[in-house]
């Protein structure tokens, strides 16, 4: 068995190669935004309820809906969609670059398109 270089100890936390490094960086950012929003909104609602009594929650409404209903029920799914769109835009650009990169030795890239 050949214990050749980078393939053996690659993992999500140890990405290898330019493509994978970039991809993992974006995935980490997206997951951070995902986690922060889910946990953040719940903690926000929890502490609001715990410390400022119910009255504040009743009066804090956005467009008829109590604030935490709106944040969790309406905004979070929307936020997930936004995150997915951002990820796709990045991946699309990235995929274009990498095909260009691999074709470079055969075809000259279209001038004006950046690296």
């Amino acid at each position: 068995m050949k214990e050749t270089s980078p393939h053996n100890n690659l993992s999500f936390f140890r990405p290898r190669g330019k493509t994978m490094r970039g991809e993992v960086r974006v995935i980490k950012l997206i997951l951070l935004g995902w986690l922060a929003a889910i946990v953040g909104f719940q903690l926000f609602a929890y502490f609001l309820e715990a410390s400022y009594s119910i009255i504040l929650l009743e009066n804090l409404t956005f467009f008829n809906l109590p604030l935490q209903f709106w944040l969790t029920g309406q905004f979070l799914p929307l936020w997930f969609i936004i995150l997915c769109v951002l990820f796709n835009i990045w991946m699309d650009r990235h995929a274009k670059q990498s095909t260009e990169g691999s074709l470079r030795f055969r075809i000259k890239p279209v001038s004006g398109e950046d690296e």
Binding site: V26, I27, W34, I38, C84
Partner: peptide, 13 residues
């Protein structure tokens, strides 16, 4: 609601 929508982010990325 959050679980059944947020899972798609995990799945996609």
């Amino acid at each position: 609601v959050v679980g059944w929508t947020g899972g798609y982010v995990l799945l996609l990325v």
